[in-house]
């Protein structure tokens, strides 16, 4: 299987490569349009800040390429948020592949921001979560989130429900870190690779 991991200086890439390695898979870390177009599966990890990530994607022409891809695509963490339309984080225009706007968690007593740690998944509705139970835990680290909508395929709550995972056609994305979520995360990654 030919797996491309998008290289846009988005951070956290090594952990994703290692997670694939643990499954016995070698991936190509690349920003090359032809290599990305020719891959069987695309992983789009990300950490950090939305507007600088978008700047880097534009510099590489990836903002034009990514929306045209047709193979199974998995955004992770910031890589999920970037698929939306707009982020409150430094007023960033995003890729616009999914119809959500990314907003910051409100200040609420007892709810620290970033939302950091293990939270349970609910309302699972996708083959991405085959073999998982509602209430299985995954690892989140984020201060911004995508609200729940028609595109939501899993939810988590902090304290209100938000999108833990989204999907539009071949574009799947998760807010949590599959590569840091123990056996549950590994199963999700395996499920994606079977799509």
């Amino acid at each position: 299987m030919n797996i491309a991991v998008i290289d846009y200086k988005g951070g956290n890439v090594q952990s994703v490569l290692f997670a694939l390695e643990r499954l016995g898979l070698q991936a190509t870390l690349t920003a090359d349009h032809n290599l990305i177009r020719g891959a069987d599966k695309i992983l789009f990890p990300g950490e950090g800040e939305a507007s600088s990530a978008m700047r880097e994607l534009r510099a590489q022409g990836l903002d034009q390429l990514l929306p045209t891809l047709t193979q199974p695509f998995l955004g992770i963490c910031l890589g999920m948020q970037l698929l939306g339309r707009h982020s409150q984080e430094n007023d960033a225009e995003l890729l616009g592949i999914l119809p959500f706007d990314v907003v910051r968690f409100p200040e609420a007593a007892g709810y620290k921001v970033p939302h950091m740690g293990w939270n349970n998944l609910q309302q699972l509705r996708s083959p991405l979560f085959a073999g998982l139970r509602e209430e299985d835990y995954v690892y989140f680290v984020h201060s911004y989130y995508a609200p729940v909508g028609d595109y939501t395929i899993a939810e988590a709550a902090y304290p209100a429900p938000f999108s833990a995972a989204v999907q539009h056609e071949n574009f799947y994305a998760v807010q949590f870190h599959t590569e840091k979520s123990g056996p549950v995360g590994t199963r999700i990654l395996e499920n994606f690779l079977k799509l």
């Binding site: 290692f18 590569e179 979520s181």
Partner: peptide, 8 residues
């Protein structure tokens, strides 16, 4: 550690 570990 990162190669082996699947938690943060």
């Amino acid at each position: 550690v990162a190669r082996e570990l699947d938690i943060p």
